[in-house]
Simulated assay, not measured.
Amino acid sequence: MAVEKPMEPSDILETPEESLAPDLTVVVEDPEAVEVEMDDGSVVIEFGDTPEMDENVSHDSNLAEYIEDDELEEIASELIEHFASDRESRGEWASAYIKGMDLLGMKVEERTEPWNGASGVYHPMMTEAVVKFQAQAMGELLPAAGPVRSKIVGKMTTEKFEQAQRVETELNYLITEKMPDYRDEMEQMLFKLPMAGSAFKKIYFDPITERPVSQFVPAEDLVVSYGASNLRTAPRFTHVMKKTPEEVLKLQVNGFYRDIELPAATRDVTDIEEKYNELEGSEPTFSDDPRHTILEMHVDLDLPEPFDDVDGVALPYVVTVDKSS
């Protein structure tokens, strides 16, 4: 029996020094975006804070959480340009509305023509007509028993009648007792409707108060794309909202808006708002009103993958943009 010296690995395979691959250099661009855990010998690395796309994204999900930031910026820039164009296209209406408010007789002007001290008072005839319209409409639209009336379609049965009564009672209770802002918003709407010619109601579920909210949207705060005959077929329309930083923060904490840092609010006052302040005799400063101008745009969009339509058709979305950002 012979015992031989065991072979060394170098005796089996010799690799020339120059054939070895160069050392791999790892460069971390953003150290805060990388997390390494090696407690059990494993390594976990996370890049960025954009969540991965979930195959089962619900209908009411915030799609901004799944779209890249550069694509979001491109969409926002394009939409803000469209909004500015839509607002500019109704400039004649805004000018006529401002001139009409001078005829309400709510302010005395000091005139120098045709002579110094000439009367600058307008007869409050238009204001009287507006107030009468508001009072009569309130009596019809919001009677003491409540605004809801049920109507049975088809053959009348005892079951249908009782169900209709239950629905009517429940909705009247909701509007008159659980929605204290309903009457106030209705009164404001009916006062401005005859002056502006249009007024809008926005009814939605508020995640903060956890109840339905009926909000009056004046005509100057709803900007519709030029040439649209109605909101149902309009390619886009925008609700201009003013929200304080605290209101925005509450909606971010609730998950309604993205949890991102917004820039400081910038003052955005239209000519119509300045006219309101003039008639009220107030001159608010920016420190009194540090609100964000939020554009809630209902628009048809062709979003990037994977939310695009296979046929390239623009689909309806609600896009919210901070105008100052």
Score class of each variant (00 low, 15 high):
residue 214 S to C: 15
residue 287 S to I: 11
residue 2 A to D: 05
residue 101 M to N: 04
residue 60 D to A: 05
residue 246 E to M: 03
residue 319 V to N: 02
residue 9 P to S: 06
residue 254 N to P: 01
residue 144 A to K: 15
residue 147 P to A: 13
residue 65 E to P: 06
residue 80 I to M: 03
residue 7 M to L: 13
residue 242 K to H: 15
residue 271 D to I: 12
residue 265 A to E: 00
residue 114 P to Y: 02
residue 250 K to I: 04
residue 211 R to C: 03
residue 146 G to Q: 03
residue 139 G to L: 10
residue 123 H to L: 08
residue 218 P to S: 04
residue 184 D to M: 12
residue 222 L to Y: 12
residue 255 G to E: 14
residue 251 L to S: 09
residue 195 M to V: 02
residue 142 L to A: 14
residue 132 K to L: 09
residue 118 A to D: 14
residue 39 D to M: 09
residue 62 N to M: 11
residue 245 P to S: 09
residue 229 S to I: 04
residue 249 L to I: 02
residue 70 D to I: 11
residue 242 K to E: 04
residue 245 P to E: 07
residue 288 D to E: 15
residue 152 I to W: 01
residue 93 W to G: 04
residue 212 P to H: 10
residue 276 Y to E: 07
residue 10 S to C: 04
residue 80 I to G: 02
residue 169 T to D: 11
residue 214 S to A: 15
residue 146 G to E: 02
residue 160 K to H: 05
residue 15 T to F: 06
residue 203 I to C: 04
residue 194 P to Y: 13
residue 300 D to N: 11
residue 4 E to D: 09
residue 320 T to H: 15
residue 10 S to L: 08
residue 252 Q to T: 04
residue 307 F to P: 09
residue 282 S to C: 13
residue 83 F to S: 06
residue 1 M to Q: 13
residue 274 E to N: 14
residue 309 D to N: 06
residue 223 V to R: 07
residue 226 Y to G: 06
residue 263 P to I: 09
residue 259 D to H: 05
residue 10 S to M: 03
residue 36 V to R: 02
